[in-house]
């Protein structure tokens, strides 16, 4: 299961875009799952992510590793911020 209408976006930001582009197809995810599990799945699909530091936002909210998510319209991988 993914989002209610089956459309889900995986977005990358900052230095991650050099490794995997700005956006990717995500395919099915085993919802409900924890953020930690989601990270494992994403890194298995894109091993370039393994050594990177990033937080995961689901539908524009940054989640903790132990949070359980049941669905998502957007998953965003956010490296350390660098504004200013």
């Amino acid at each position: 299961m993914s989002s209610a209408d089956g459309k889900m976006t995986l977005r990358f930001f900052g230095p991650l875009t050099d490794l995997v582009g700005e956006q990717a197809a995500i395919g099915d995810l085993p919802f409900p799952c924890t953020i930690a599990r989601l990270r494992e799945i994403l890194e298995a699909r894109s091993p370039q992510l393994k050594k990177q530091t990033y937080r995961i936002a689901v539908d524009e909210v940054i989640r903790e590793e132990t949070d359980v998510i049941g669905s998502a319209r957007e998953i965003a991988l956010l490296p350390p911020f660098a504004g200013g």
């Binding site: 930001f13 900052g14 230095p15 965003a76 956010l78 350390p80 911020f81 660098a82 504004g83 200013g84």
Partner: peptide
């Protein structure tokens, strides 16, 4: 704030800004 800066360099390359 999730803002990122790609620093463009004289060699036509880039590096990512860190705070």
């Amino acid at each position: 704030a999730p803002i990122y800066g790609k620093e463009l360099t004289v060699t036509d390359g880039h590096r990512w800004k860190t705070n």
